[in-house]
Every structure is written in C-alpha cells, then in structure tokens.
Design a protein around this nucleic acid. Structure first.
Lengths: 354, 354
DNA sequence: CTGAAAGCGCTTACAG
DNA sequence: CTGAAAGCGCTTACAG
C-alpha cells in the first residue's frame, strides 16, 4: 500500500493524498474526508524513508550514552558485575525520561552506547547517515566531547549534558548542566551546620565536569567557613562503587577520623557504606555520610542516605525540548541551561556537639 | 556529499561506488582502494533513507516497553514517585542489554514506551512506516499482546517477552519466556527446606504471565510437599511497591502469622519490608522473606534480600540475536526460548525449628 | 569488470 | 483547488 494506490482508490492524484497527510490548507473538507477514510481503511502508513529522502525530518532523536573506561579497574566489591551500561543504572532515568518526553512530541528515539573511543563512529554515523534530526550526548568527559565535536562537524543539532562550556564550544551545541557547584556547596554547608569540622571527601572522576566542580565547590565551602582541609581526608575516586570503598578505607585510616564525609555520588556511597561497616563503625553515630545524585537506591540503603538531588529526568526533558525546538526551527539554537539541586534529608547524617 | 560526487572524484560510475560500499566481489583491488580513499577523505556516509527505500534493511531494531496501567493506584509509600517508566527501573537492564547486543551486531535501536492503550499506535507505526526491521515487546499483558498482534498484522518480525505461548499465536512471533515456574517452585521449596510450614505469598499481577505462573507454581510446591495453603496468607498484589506494602500488612494481621513469605517480585518486597518494619517485626528473625527478580536494589536492602535471579540481560540478548537472525533470513523464524532462574541467597531468610 | 537506466515512495514547486 | 513532473540518493538487474 502506497500513496499512489490510495490516490487511485479515492480518485485523486498522489499530490492530493500527500497534501491531506501533511495538513495543507485549502483542501475541501469532502476530499480530505475521503482520503482520510481510504488511508484508515487500507491501513496505509507513509514510508518514513521516502519522506526523509525528500527532505522532511526523520522525527527521530538520538541519545548517546558515553561510558568510556580507559583503564580497567578491579570490582571486587560489586556483586553481579556486568561492567557495562546495564550494570550502571545511573543513566537509566535520563534515557527513560528522554524517550518519554520525545515520544510525547511525536519523536522517536534512537539510543546508542559508546564504551570505547573506537565506538565514537556510532555518533558520527547516526548523524551523517541522516538517521536522526538531532541528538544528545551524556556521560562524556570534556576531552571526549571535544573529540566528538570535531568528528561530527558543526552542521548538526546537538546537545550535551555535563560539559564545560567554553568560548570555543559555546556556539556549537545546546548545553544542559547540573548545578554541581551549588549542590556540593550546600552539601558541605549542611555538614558544617550539623556541627562537623573534620570533614572528608571522596571525589568523583575529576576529569569529568561534575567531578571537578563538586570537588572545587567543597573546598570553597570549607574555606568560606574557616575550616581547614586535611589532606588525609581526601580520597580521589572515579564515581564507581569500588572507588568509594577504597576511598573510605583510606580516609578511615587517618590518625584522627573525620566525623563526616561528603561522597561525590551515591554509587561510591554504597562502597563507602561497606567500608564503614567492615571497620565496625556505624552511620551516622560514628560518621556522617552525604551523597550526591539522590539515586533510586539511596532511599533503600541502610541507613537511608542523605543525598543531593539532581533531577536527571528534568535534564532529559530539557534536552529533548531544546533539541526539538532547534529542529523545528531548522537550525541549532545554542543555549546553556542549568538544572538545579536540592538536598534530600534522610538518616545518614547526625548533628554533633563540638 | 553523495555517491555521485564520490563517483566523479574517483572517475567511476555511481554503480561502482555502490558496489564497493556493499562489498561486491569482482572489483579490482585498485578501484576498490581508490573509492574507499575518496569516501574516507570526503567524509561520505551513504544516506540511510535512500538505502532503505530501495529495499535494504534499516538496520534498526525496535524495543517497545509496554506499561499500561488501567486503574490508577495510590502510591503513598513511594518517595519521589514519577509514576512513569523512569520511576520503574525494572525494564532498564533489559533495554540496556538489548541496545548493547544490537549495537554489537551493527544495528541501531529505537526505544518506545507505551503507557496506555491509546499509544499502541507507536508500535504499529514503527513497523508500518518501515522504521525498523524487527522489534521486541516487553511488559505487556497477554490480552494487550493479542491486541498488538491484531494491529500489526503478521508480516513483521517480532519478538515478545513473558507472553503465554498458545496454538493460536505460536507461529506469529519469537517468544522469550522466563522460567517462572521453576523459579517460584524453587523459592517455595527453599523456604520449606528451611523448615517453614506457615508460608504466605504476595502475588504479582496475575493477569500477566509471570504473575499467574509464579502463583500457580507456589501452590504446586506446597501441595507436593504436603503443606496446607492458608487463605489468610495470600495477598494479591500487582508488582508495585505499594501493593507489597498493603499485602504484607494484610498477611501480618492473620491470627497466626506465617513464618515466611514468598513475595513475587523485589519491588513488592520493598513495600513488604516497610510493612514489617512498621509492625516492629524484624527480618529474618520474626519472618523470612524471599523475593523474585534479583533486582539491583535487592543487594542493598536491609537485610539484603534473598531473591530468585532471572537474567533480564540474558533475555534481552536472546531477543536481539533471534530478531537479527530472522532479519538476515528475511523472514520470521518462530521460536520459544526459556531463560533460566537461580536463587541468590542473601540474608532475609532463616532456618527455623519445628 | 562496469556504466546507463529504472525505480523505491514520497513531497513540492510549477502551471493551470 | 489540483495534477503532472521532477527529484531526493541510493541499489540492482541489464547489457555490454
């Protein structure tokens, strides 16, 4: 079944069929009705490839989940480790919300994963083969993102999440950033307000924007509150559960233990909990812990983890909306959006007296 | 940049360019090299729509996540409830593994969500508009699936997860089922072997295959072990956290409490844990709990939940592989595959003396 | 081994 | 208001 057959059935030309499908004005109601009826009765769906070929939009958005691990790490702590995306639930809320928002606007969503530099071609080919009208990149480090930008050129409608915006790149994409600075600052302030002075940190991957900003903000918050940062209280992690475990072990070995630790994401907090448990310490009595991301798991941890909520679903909806806005406008509308953060208090932090 | 331009640059015809792209034999190595070089240097990517239009495959697989809720339910227990897919992490491992497997075979993946019967068109149009070469449906109830089958006709390559295979439908799709019977049987047997005789159940949505089978299997296991099923110990849930909460409350009101409960999925177990906590009871000392799905959260619950593992990633990989097999063969190869289950022991069940 | 030509199914100026 | 025709970018018999 194609438009020609529909045309024959109704007794009009393909042009007319096309016009009613595309909602042209100036078509007599009677004709429109007849065509629509034939379409319905014959179960006709216009071929999407043919439409694209003549320059219509594909009504498809891409989401590229970049999760490149250059150096393999041991994962003793992780049970059931599958080591790939499906072992990492961090991106799922984003992907799911993005699909949902796109679908609402009648767009389809192509999802691709990039696990190594060799797979960057997936992003390029999706754009160059004209499979998508626009796409969002999430999970990439700044340097990877620069490489991607080079590769796909500047003629595409593209959005990036959690990427450092510079003079150089600011006109080349839509940027959705998380208010990491405020979130980390408030998390630190929260611990200080609870009376803590000996505060540690397990950082994220500081080659990612969210990793470096959370760390800087933590230091700034201590500084502004006249608190000395103890080098022993710093552990450099990489956002994985295992690094949280190792990091907390390291911190707990300090001659004088901190009374609170800011763990830069919830996944590392899981590892940190294990380390604390193994040392026979208890949360929050012996040590307070605050996480970041407010991931699904945080509410089920024991004790439930106080965490900084950054709404990935909100970031996803923003990405989809802005991408679609640019697509309908037929050109990239560069923009920078910041998704806000709030602290979700649970039971992992305790007030202490000095 | 198109194939014509490449042809001009190299000094051959478009036919020849096309032949090298599609790896035709009988092309002199010299010609092949020259064409490849021009393609590389000019950053040429064949237009996917044009290729599809002449009958090539789209190299795209669809995954349709069906999550239709006919009647809205209260969700008091759920914090941060967004009520949509991204509030439901159950499907994520499947989606992610499916994408991964498809990408490995050089296929793209289109993901769509269906939250109400009105949105069933998404499935139909993806197929009929020729956006995908094949697709898998997950999360649908048997009756919804039948409706989908009707709608999309029988000319497409389609797979379905967790659907009852009948004489009627068995030739119309590829079926990937979970070994719910064995899993539920072993879970029940596990409790019995631990010495439990007063065993309750919170069922899943028994209009879904996995819901009804797990329940039937539970009853059968009790029967074969000469244990009487107490009506007070049955709570009918629907796989949601809230129904687990309500279900456990109901069961705990029995004049004589059961010593163990089989909760038909982990999400409901979360609710059940809360109910048990609120009654001032402790797991597993006062009551043993076993879940189903071995979801990511189960290992972080307190105490960690013993659960039946069904590998959704494995089901996903199977779906992708079989779909691709049919596509390459250019016709549906109906098949039924069963994904196996195993019990993952953690700390929520205890041996008791009779 | 290779080119000219047809054709996939659509949309959109163009002309009336 | 509407039809005939061109053209989107590819692949594939067909003929040589």
């Amino acid at each position: 079944m194609n438009s020609k057959e529909i045309a024959k059935i109704v007794g009009v030309s393909r042009s007319t069929v096309s016009r009613v499908i595309n909602n042209y004005p100036d078509i007599p109601e009677a004709t429109r009705e007849k065509v629509l009826k034939a379409i319905r009765e014959n179960n006709y769906y216009p071929n999407s490839s043919a439409r694209r070929l003549v320059g219509m939009k594909s009504s498809t958005l891409g989401v590229f989940v970049v999760d490149i691990k250059d150096n393999e790490k041991p994962h003793h702590v992780i049970e059931n480790n599958e080591d790939l995306l499906y072992g990492n639930s961090y991106f799922s809320p984003f992907i799911n919300a993005f699909i949902d928002q796109a679908n609402k606007a009648q767009y389809y969503v192509l999802v691709s994963t990039v696990y190594s530099s060799d797979e960057l071609w997936k992003i390029k080919s999706s754009f160059c083969e004209k499979r998508i009208d626009g796409g969002v990149i999430i999970g990439s480090k700044d340097n990877e993102y620069e490489k991607i930008l080079e590769v796909i050129g500047k003629d595409f409608i593209i959005a990036a999440v959690d990427i450092n915006v510079t003079e150089e790149n600011k006109d080349k994409a839509i940027y959705i950033n998380l208010n990491n600075y405020k979130g980390a600052f408030e998390a630190t302030k929260y611990l200080i307000d609870l009376g803590h002075r000996d505060i540690g940190i397990i950082t994220g991957d500081i080659t990612k924007l969210s990793g470096s900003v959370r760390f800087e903000s933590f230091k700034q918050a201590l500084l502004e509150n006249g608190i000395q940062l103890n080098e022993d209280y710093i552990a450099y992690g990489d956002f994985t559960e295992y690094s949280g475990y190792i990091g907390m072990k390291k911190i707990l070995k300090s001659s004088r233990r901190p009374t609170a630790v800011f763990v830069c994401n919830d996944t590392m907090a899981i590892g940190a909990y294990k380390a604390i448990g193994e040392m026979g310490l208890s949360i929050p009595d012996d040590i307070s812990v605050i996480g970041f991301d407010n991931s699904q798991i945080s509410q089920y941890m024991y004790p439930p983890l106080t965490s900084v909520n950054v709404s990935l679903p909100e970031a996803a909806k923003l990405s989809a909306d802005l991408l679609i806005k640019s697509i309908e406008k037929k050109e990239l509308v560069p923009e920078v959006k910041i998704v806000d953060t709030t602290i979700v208090e649970r039971a992992s932090c305790k007030r202490i007296d000095n």
